[in-house]
Nucleic acid binder design. Structure first.
Length: 865
RNA sequence: GCCGGGGUGGCGGAACUGGUAGACGCGCCGGACUCAAAAUCCGGUUCUGGUAACAGAGUGGGGGUUCGAUUCCCCCCCCCGGCACCA
């Protein structure tokens, strides 16, 4: 009798053996010619507990890492902590614990959870962004950027909570109010440091084409985010000033009927000086948050300033309006409005009764109606009308002509404009990397000298929600000016946490170097061969990391242009939700682990009840695992119950990695059953003693068939692990093969030798997914080395040869039969065999055969009517 | 509002380059084992009609291209991610 599968015993023992042998150390100092492979997951924010999204992310990463190890590569799989950020401050406010302690406790806890999952992580390279040894290099590099002029200071608009006297994150603005104070949020301009990412817009856009290991959708999103548009800059005189605008449609300049400027535009403020109504309107415009989604969905409001701008070609006077849909942060903070051919301008002009002339002809059959917008109005394929000298030109030629005339009058020129804006990195928050600047009354803003870095963040403060506690920390704030030696104050803003995450992947290559930010090892490991993380990072994090890489290249610190060769964006982890409403209308959410479902004889769910008392609860649909819906499933509890291998197997089997994954306890049971069958299969096999080598030439038909399936499975799984990253279909293929193998009678020595080859094959194939059980079974199958050193199984091409193929026979596209044929049979042979098929004869009876389509080795379609 | 993605049995999903729709797993139904239950093993399981053989329908909805469409094109509906201070 074989011992039963007991992951609770096997997994800790195997993990200990790996740790004792330092099996996952990426660099043992030897140079053995192995190719390097850097496999990286987006590092976690240490929120407290590992959740299923983490578990899925790191399992994908581990499967790829271990597969690459088995293919003979030297693999680096590191782990670190994105440790600065807002949640630590919120937790601090709630519990009175300093963010530093809360964060470090969380890291310790989550590290333990990660280790229990058996990932092949090189823990010697672990880092946390809140460590001064890490963030000192943020500061060091920021100062270099400042010297180069890439970092600079200007004002920016933020959400301001007038009660808490605090800057709020967009997330902290709920329905236009501060989430703690409930006060109406206002926009406020404050000075901040920016990085000139717009200087790199062209390169960031153009090198997207080279990122052929990235999903198309991510490249498209980044390209649209950068948003390069060719157009013209046009100056309109207004009083003694000029209003500069950018337009992509200079051809429609003759259709401009008004100017629209942002509420923060200097001219708007000027106009408000002796216009109380306008002043009130500008105050009104300050209400609400700064997020683009809010601004784009709010009602379009405007007010005439009374100022007139001069049309640069006609000399006509255009009214200047303040409009809340024009933003100071975009372009010039002003636009020329062409309501006939721009939807937002049209809507605004209609509302405020401004003229809406047509200046571009429309397609045949489309009549122009200045009361009803139509998509055709914005098309660029008509010719110019009502445009004086430009009448009759097509839009492209019209644009050229208009710009040429503007240039002649020094009132405009061609320009490329980006949607991308410079990256504001100042945060008015405590738990982040201090910006290394000293404010001196005499010397102004003075960079902290390099030898004084890092500027250490005091770790014992507890924020209270009212501003930044650093500002009240006298020991931190008060310092001396490095230039004049006089009393001075430190900058209390900290850096955006996206700065921390823009280069951590470089630091993993040399985490202990206290002399330099990166070194020669960085160029040897980089770029990351495979990066894995959530699709929600498709734009911001990935764009900033690409930008930062180019900045470091231009500082001469690294030699490559792009950080991530191949990118996999994993889907979210979802689970069913269950709730109950009480008489007061309050909703209580119940965890799926506490709910039983009842089904009818077709398997459809009829009722859900609470396991504890049998009372009914309502299914609320499938949603992202979240605290608010109480539908999170704790990976720890599952690992304790089933073992890490089962949880890993299910999460890789239930869905392809890019799609969302619906958690299912029953599905986990299925994975558990499969591993137990695998275990029992191997144990039953070895109970008969270990057989000798298989003789491929001496196999009976059934054995040859099984061996063909084995080698087809090896090909399929290698392709799925190495190229397609469809782990679900790889696992399905392994399950399918195991089903065959378990049914295969091992009556003879020859067959037992084949079974040995088959079990060894399947154990090696599944090792990347379920490393513990694979390691144990590999030993049981008679090996003293690690299954990961044994390597990926070799394909025997002769085993793949088929004796016959099945060809599908269709009549008019419907399957009517199947014929067997030798592989590579000729068209005529297949056609005559198909036409002789009795079902084909029956379905073409009384009809004329029009044509016969033959796809060799696959399909025949007889077309008849 | 703008940008991007998705929709296939009761459920998760498969079908990779336009060529057998539903692999694999879950659930459900039936059987074996058992005093019984659990576990395990065996068989069945898209829907409709039919005892069955078989026939018809079918990949969110509508239209198109093609011998052939889940796959390509057009229109529409619904769901999800991002929108620059959540990470």
């Amino acid at each position: 009798m074989s011992e039963t599968y007991n992951p609770g015993q096997i997994e800790p023992a195997i993990q200990k053996a790996w740790a004792d042998q330092a099996a996952h150390r990426a660099d043992d100092g030897s140079e053995d010619g192995r190719e390097r492979f850097y496999c990286l997951s987006m590092f976690p924010y240490p929120s407290g507990k590992l959740h299923m999204g983490h578990m899925r992310n790191y399992t994908i990463c581990d499967v790829i890492s271990r597969y690459q190890m088995m293919c003979g590569r030297r693999v680096l799989q590191p782990m670190g902590w994105d440790a600065f950020g807002l949640p630590a401050e919120n937790a601090a406010m709630a519990n009175g614990v300093p963010p530093a302690k809360w964060t470090r406790d969380n890291i310790a806890h989550m590290r333990g959870q990660l280790k229990a999952l058996g990932f092949a992580i090189d823990w010697e390279r672990e880092l946390a962004t809140c460590d001064p040894e890490y963030y000192r290099w943020n500061q060091w590099f920021f100062l270099r950027l400042l010297k180069r002029g890439i970092a600079y200071k200007k004002t920016g608009v933020v959400n301001w909570d007038p009660v808490d006297q605090s800057v709020l994150a967009n997330e902290q603005v709920v329905d236009g109010r501060g989430w703690r104070s409930g006060a109406l949020v206002e926009k406020r301009e404050i000075p901040m440091y920016y990085l000139r990412i717009t200087d790199y817009a062209d390169e960031l856009l153009e090198s997207l084409d080279e990122l052929d290991g990235w999903p198309e959708r991510v490249r498209t999103m980044q390209a649209n985010w950068i948003g390069r548009s060719a157009g013209a800059e046009i100056s309109f005189a207004c009083r003694d000033q000029t209003i500069k605008v950018f337009t992509t449609r200079p051809d429609t300049l003759m259709g401009a009927t008004y100017m629209a400027i942002a509420a923060e535009h200097p001219l708007a403020r000027l106009a408000a000086d002796n216009n109380p109504e306008l002043r009130d309107f500008l105050i009104e415009c300050q209400k609400g948050g700064v997020s683009e989604a809010d601004i784009a969905t709010q009602e379009k409001l405007g007010m005439d300033t009374g100022f007139k701008a001069i049309h640069p070609l006609t000399g006509e006077e255009l009214p200047v309006w303040v409009a809340n849909y024009v933003l100071m942060g975009y372009g010039e903070g002003a636009i020329m409005a062409v309501p006939g051919h721009d939807e937002r301008d049209f809507e605004f002009a209609l509302k405020y009764h401004l003229p809406i002339p047509q200046v571009v002809s429309l397609p045949e059959g489309r009549a122009y109606d200045d009361r009803q917008w139509h998509e055709d109005y914005k098309a660029k394929d008509g010719t110019l009308i009502n445009s004086g000298a430009y009448n009759g030109l097509n839009c492209a030629d019209g644009a050229e002509a208009v710009v040429a005339d503007l240039e002649a009058r020094d009132a405009g020129r061609k320009r490329i404009q980006y949607r991308l804006r410079d990256w504001g990195i100042s945060r008015q928050r405590y738990w982040g990397c201090p910006i290394p600047i000293i404010h001196c009354e005499h010397c102004g803003e003075v960079p902290v000298p390099e030898q004084d870095l890092p500027v250490m963040l005091p770790e014992d403060l507890v924020p209270d929600g009212a501003g930044n506690p650093l500002g009240r920390h006298e020991a931190f704030v008060n310092t001396v000016c490095p230039t004049c030696g006089g009393p001075a104050r430190r900058e209390t803003d900290t850096m955006d946490t996206f700065v921390d995450s823009s280069w951590y992947f470089l630091r993993f290559t040399c985490p202990d170097n206290d002399q330099a930010m990166v070194d020669a090892e960085t160029n040897r490991w980089m770029p990351v061969d495979q990066y894995i993380g959530g699709i929600e990072h498709a734009i911001l994090h990935l764009l900033y990391a690409r930008f930062w890489t180019k900045l470091m290249r231009d500082e001469g610190l690294i030699t490559f242009d792009e950080p991530f060769a191949r990118l996999l964006t994993q889907g979210m982890v979802l689970a069913e939700t269950y709730y109950r409403k009480d008489d007061a209308g309050r909703t209580t959410w119940f965890n799926p682990a506490d709910v039983d479902v009842e089904r009818n004889e077709k398997g459809q769910v009829t009722r859900a009840v609470l396991a504890s008392d049998g009372t009914e609860v309502t299914p609320g649909g499938i949603e992202k695992m979240a605290k608010s819906k109480n539908n999170g499933v704790d990976p720890k509890a599952l690992v304790d119950h089933y073992g890490a291998d089962t949880v890993r197997l299910f999460s890789m089997f239930a869905a392809p990695p890019e799609q969302s994954l619906e958690w299912s306890e029953a599905g986990v049971e299925g994975a558990w059953r499969f591993l137990r069958r695998l275990w029992t299969g191997v144990q039953d096999h070895i109970a008969g003693g270990l057989p000798g080598q298989v003789d491929p030439g001496g196999l009976d038909d059934e054995s040859r068939e099984l061996r063909r399936l084995l080698h087809e499975t090896i090909v399929k799984v290698g392709d799925d692990f190495g190229r397609r990253y469809t782990f679900n279909t790889a696992i399905a293929a392994m399950m399918e093969f195991c089903n065959h193998l378990n049914r295969f009678g091992a009556a003879t020595d020859g067959r037992r030798a084949l079974c040995q080859e088959a079990w060894e094959g399947i154990v090696r194939l599944i090792a990347p997914v379920t490393p513990h059980i694979a390691e144990k079974l590999w030993q049981d199958l008679g090996h003293s080395d690690s299954v990961f050193e044994a390597g990926w199984p070799q394909v025997d091409k002769t085993a793949l040869v088929r004796q016959a193929v099945t060809i599908v026979v269709q009549v008019n596209g419907k399957v009517r039969g199947r014929i067997e044929a030798a592989p590579g049979s000729g068209r005529e042979d297949i056609e005559s065999a198909a036409l002789a098929d009795e079902n084909v004869v029956r379905f073409v009876a009384g009809k004329t055969i029009r044509k016969v389509i033959v796809v060799p080795d696959k399909l025949v379609n007889v077309v008849a009517n």
